[in-house]
Design a protein around this nucleic acid. Structure first.
Lengths: 147, 147
DNA sequence: TACATAATGATATGTTATCTCAATAAGGAA
DNA sequence: TTCCTTATTGAGATAACATATCATTATGTA
């Protein structure tokens, strides 16, 4: 449960440690992404920000970087009740957690809760699948929207 | 845990009971959909089938019907590990359950497991959200793909 | 049977993401 | 430092998927 401070280097190191190159666009993205910690964004929104900082960076580069960071578990994909999704750097980046999203205002909150190892094992037996992962999203109304 | 046999009338009655009209296109769709029980499909695939049975039915009509049946909990939306999704009539239509999908072959299996009421309550407290729903998807490899 | 309106179909439009591929640049080797 | 291999990039085309528009049609009830 150690919370690493998110710096551009944390992101860039993640690229390097996975045999990927540290490039100009990736440096620029890393800078922008640390500013967005705790906020959720669509890739389009991120691209808009990128354009402001450097109009020469391509759309595909941003999509590619987001996909990579997602695979490296640095970026979380958060699903909303309407089927849309956004990305975010979470407080406990890399640690296993899930999200509650508010169906009214879109607020996202991280939660620790998950299925127990016991429950997961039962599911594997019941289905005869080797369970490799899961996605768990909660939908509700935040305290503010209930007032 | 009573399993209702899925007939076209089950689908059409669902429309009627919700104040919706039973129309020609909906009759045709109901016929096709019962054939697909237990199979999963994209709306595009369903539309292809519809075109074969009646080329005059419009694309939007199929999308609209799927949305309605999803809202009525007759059709399940199944999410895959790659972010894509398909629809299916499940064996226990209308009952609460989740799915395991095979990341290799795409096979879908229904499972009964879920979070306990206790767990859900804790999540509500922890997040200070009024939890209204959740989505839970499991990913893994089916027995066939492990051989 | 007539009527109010839900539903439809054709198509335009929107949204979101991926593909292509020549040009460029990162970073290990010499 | 310079060279060289190849990962990465950018621009735009293309794809996949879904919704909006709106005049027309057809349902179900009064």
């Amino acid at each position: 449960m150690t919370s690493t401070t998110l710096t551009p280097d944390v992101i860039l190191d993640a690229f390097k440690e996975n045999g990927l190159r540290i490039t100009g666009p990736r440096r620029a993205l890393a800078l922008l992404l640390v500013e967005m910690k705790g906020f959720d964004f669509t890739v389009e929104q991120l691209w808009d920000k990128v354009l402001q900082s450097d109009p020469n960076i391509g759309r595909a580069t941003v999509f590619r970087a987001v996909e990579i960071l997602q695979d490296l578990h640095l970026l979380d994909r958060v699903e909303f009740a309407d089927g849309s999704h956004r990305f975010r750097f979470c407080h406990e980046a890399g640690s296993h957690h899930h999200h509650v999203t508010c169906s009214t205002c879109g607020k996202v909150t991280e939660i620790e809760a998950c299925l127990s190892a016991d429950q997961l094992a039962k599911i594997g037996l019941q289905s005869d699948f080797a369970i490799e992962g899961h996605r768990l999203e909660f939908f509700g109304r935040c305290s503010r929207c209930r007032k």
